[in-house]
Design a protein around this nucleic acid. Sequence first.
DNA 1: GCGTACCCAG
DNA 2: CTGGGTACGC
Lengths: 267, 267
Amino acid sequence: MSQISIGTFNVNSVNARMPILERFLTSEEAPEILCLQETKCRDEMFPEDLFKELGYHSLFKGMKSYNGVAVISKIEPDEVEFGLNDGAVEPDKEESENARVVFAKFGDLNILNTYIPQGKEIDHPDYQYKLRFFQRVRQLFERKLTPKEKLLWLGDLNVAPTDFDVTNPKNKKNHVCFHADVKNAFAEVMSWGFVDIFRKHLPNDGEYSYWDYRVKDAFTRNIGWRIDHIIGTEIMAESSKKVWVERSLRAMERPSDHTAVIASFKV
Amino acid sequence: MSQISIGTFNVNSVNARMPILERFLTSEEAPEILCLQETKCRDEMFPEDLFKELGYHSLFKGMKSYNGVAVISKIEPDEVEFGLNDGAVEPDKEESENARVVFAKFGDLNILNTYIPQGKEIDHPDYQYKLRFFQRVRQLFERKLTPKEKLLWLGDLNVAPTDFDVTNPKNKKNHVCFHADVKNAFAEVMSWGFVDIFRKHLPNDGEYSYWDYRVKDAFTRNIGWRIDHIIGTEIMAESSKKVWVERSLRAMERPSDHTAVIASFKV
DNA sequence: GCGTACCCAG
DNA sequence: CTGGGTACGC
């Protein structure tokens, strides 16, 4: 019986965040597998060699300026797939969807790392695209797996599912990450057969993963959002031992606006 | 009999260079008067308060993005004047000329700090403007002073007067800072009654003040230019005791492409 | 290469 | 506020 820890971290530029990642990945808390979002670099710019020196294999798909996902892991994955691959992708969205979704299989453990579109505003076409994106993620799960399998869904899902997940729920009813429709779209995916593993271990309020740079002293005042998630099938929830928010990363010099969320499992 | 040291430093943004300026101005080598060029900030943005805390009075004239001159001094000047004020300024050049030339009088010591136009290319109209700029600087001296007075001319003059002043003179014949015409234009100003005080004390080659960021390892390989000058009337040359290039500033973190050049005088 | 400035995005 | 892009100057 051994332990494995798996996490998610929206880095807001993987290259800008290397000093923080280097410290984190050489610390006691370093996870075996870490899902990254918003790497914000083309594949040629991805710091694969630096991760290799830290003992991590990298899979990544990026683009110029926006989006970009990666999975770095001490063990090599057996299978990898980028994008939703459902035939529903519009031609101009292909690049960004590949830079938002990565599936990786490590033995019998399936991992989906997603950076869900933010949606801009409630009446913007991107918000409808976001709602459809959740549907398509559910369809991906239906197509590839069953709820009986070992599956984790991690990433920046750009949704705070409950009032406990934001500092001030009252003034966020029309926010694209808190509106009823996006909560429902998220709940529809969850109902396929998922458990919110973060909430299983950290049921209290005030547990956030993102603090807006634009809100003055948001981090020290703990004005934040829980939009980075660790979700899994029942079997994964049962084997989960602990979840923690690695707040130290958000307190370092030049931090991302998000921090890492990690779960440990017994295997 | 006491000592005063006076220098010139093209800072390539005064705000970007404050960490370096703070260290320099609190060190043993801190000059009593320092002429700055390329401050690159509008007057509202000039860090007057920071210099005040360091014990320096500031005079400055800047503009958005480009140019900008300042004189910071432990003693307050008695007279100040910006620009060439010869009635020859074209309307669209008025702002930049005021941000290129500052005259200051400290007792009987006259100081002209200039940031001479670079000139872009030998066949560009800006190069002819540069040559005329030197003429107009000479006319300013003729109008205001005589070679018998105490006068220093400092600044980034964008001219390397001799083969000793660049690393590879052969491939620079058509450079706007090394072409025969610009050397002549500079020599014309010198002939009014100036001594090259830098060269009086540092006659050897390899003494530069500017190392191009774009030349790989230019500073460590000492591939540079002497384009920042300390020039004075005979009486100033006679009272000069020492000149040094403050290379430490170019070796610090996030340096300017230039470094400071300082002269000490007995008064 | 390293400074500006201005744009976009979250 | 802090990323990334562009353009421009030296």
